[in-house]
Design a protein around this nucleic acid. Sequence first.
DNA 1: CGGGTTTGACCAGCGC
DNA 2: GCGCTGGTCAAACCCG
Length: 131
Amino acid sequence: MEKQQVMLPTASTSSTALSSQNQSDKEAKHHRYAFQTRSPVDVLDDGYQWRKYGKKIVKNNTFPRSYYRCAHRECNVKKQIQRHSDDEQIVVTTYEGTHTHPVDKSVETFDQILGNLLIDNLLNNAPPTIE
DNA sequence: CGGGTTTGACCAGCGC
DNA sequence: GCGCTGGTCAAACCCG
């Protein structure tokens, strides 16, 4: 397959942070941040290296969901990417966990930006867009 | 040759 | 209690 790496060209990171809602303690324990990005590619290069460990077709989505994990041994960060069933141009990236290692690249990447957006949304109490 | 990716199967959790 | 969905792991294959 072709590795499509996008370095935040025109990908507009519009909305949205899904965080510790008052769903349940289990959800709260796991850091889950969902971002909806409008990008032509599935995998956004956030500066970290990810290793794909699974793919699954979800009933609600026409497109398969991809499961990624941080390439680092100590870093047990998981990331799942799924496309919108209605708009294939919308890519939903869900981060789970926190990186304990610095970015491999020397650029302020998506992770930083998304992180800021995340915090910003958290502070603003942004309502969950997905689920 | 090594690492990474791919696909399928298995397992667990939740719902009914 | 059984069924279904989602998630993870494992083995094999492909590419660099």
